[in-house]
């Protein structure tokens, strides 16, 4: 288990257990055993620093949604504890926008009326500004033109957007998004990613669950990996990838010459592989500048067809951690 601790955004170092400097999400020993004996979440210790975009990864059925339901007080943990924003749950929830297991709205109401309905449920939301806030939330997800349309007639992507709009109704300190790109086309997916980055740029912590490794890699600063209800790893994306070094990859017909040059430069982990129409040589980049390596190769008359810096993907890390694929957890 690679648990990486990090600064929680608190200037003074150690984060207190409560108050505004507390991590956005903390769980300790959080466990849920459903009736029937299924342990959906098993002694989960999660710490989501303020201001992070935190990817919550795991295959289907690994307990992501169950964890989120517990965090939001929808499902009672069998044991363990949790806190959002270092506050009691009822005080924290108005500052938390949530998308849980897909959108759910009143089909016979318009998008706008639906948002008003959920705003009315929040005891801290000022009724005086509801029109403006609903308008802004709809605008933010690009639904202004469809605001008056009945939800029944919304497309899948529009529904997903409305759910995100509902999560943005008030000033939020934390967004919890359960698979926000589910059912979206590539364009919609890109837009959600851009939206998440934009929201995070305003200082809002974003906790986003996904079973898509690539998505988390593109959006997130931190990640945690779940597997069958258990936490396999958590930390910054960089620290998670820490085990696997960045490598330089050279495509050349003269592998032996390239190996000599790389060895002379002092690169470690030199490896020769075959690729279509030639060979490739890879090595750990270490502190070396790629352009200098290129210059050295060219200087030694090595024919370079291609040179690339290869960063380890989360997928490599994940497979490295679990030694398995990314299939459904029963």
């Amino acid at each position: 288990m690679t648990t990486v601790t990090h600064e929680a955004g608190a200037p003074s170092g150690a984060a207190p257990p409560s108050g505004p400097a507390a991590p956005a999400i903390v769980t300790r020993g959080l466990t849920k055993r459903f009736r029937g004996g299924q342990v959906a979440v098993d002694t989960l210790d999660l710490s989501v620093p303020r201001g992070s975009v935190f990817g919550f990864l795991g295959p289907n059925g690994s307990g992501k949604t169950t964890t989120i339901r517990m965090l939001l007080g929808l499902v009672a943990p069998t044991s363990g504890e949790h806190a959002l924003l270092g506050l009691p749950l009822a005080a924290a929830l108005p500052r938390v926008g949530a998308l849980v297991e897909g959108p759910a709205f009143y089909p016979y109401l318009s998008g706008e009326a639906n948002l008003r309905r959920f705003d009315a449920a929040d005891p801290t939301a000022p009724a005086a500004t509801v029109r403006r806030r609903v308008g802004e939330a709809l605008d933010r997800v690009g639904l202004t033109a469809a605001a008056g349309k009945r939800y029944r007639n919304y497309s899948l992507g529009m529904r997903q957007r409305l759910a995100i709009a509902a999560a943005l109704l008030g000033p939020r300190e934390l967004l919890v998004l359960d698979e926000p790109t589910n059912g979206l086309d590539p364009q919609g997916t890109r837009e959600v990613r851009a939206l998440v980055k934009e929201i995070a740029a305003d200082g809002t912590t974003v906790f986003v669950s996904s079973h898509l490794l690539a998505e988390v890699e593109q959006m997130c600063t931190h990640a945690a990996v779940m597997r069958a209800g258990k936490l396999v790893a958590q930390g910054t994306i960089a620290s998670l990838s820490g085990g696997q070094p960045v490598r330089v990859r050279i495509e050349t017909p003269d592998a032996a010459a390239a190996v000599r040059v790389l060895a002379a430069l002092g690169l470690a982990g030199v490896h020769i592989g075959a690729v279509e129409g030639g060979t490739e040589v890879t090595a750990e980049l270490g502190g070396h500048a790629p352009e200098r390596i290129n210059a050295a190769l060219v200087g030694a008359d090595v024919p370079v067809r291609g040179l690339a810096v290869v960063r380890p993907s989360l997928e490599d890390v994940f497979v490295g951690l679990t030694g398995e694929g990314f299939d459904v957890d029963g």
Partner: peptide, 14 residues
């Protein structure tokens, strides 16, 4: 059944 209950409670309606 419609799923709106979870969003009302997360709002939080109490």
């Amino acid at each position: 059944g419609a799923g709106t209950l979870r969003y009302l409670l997360a709002a939080p309606a109490g």
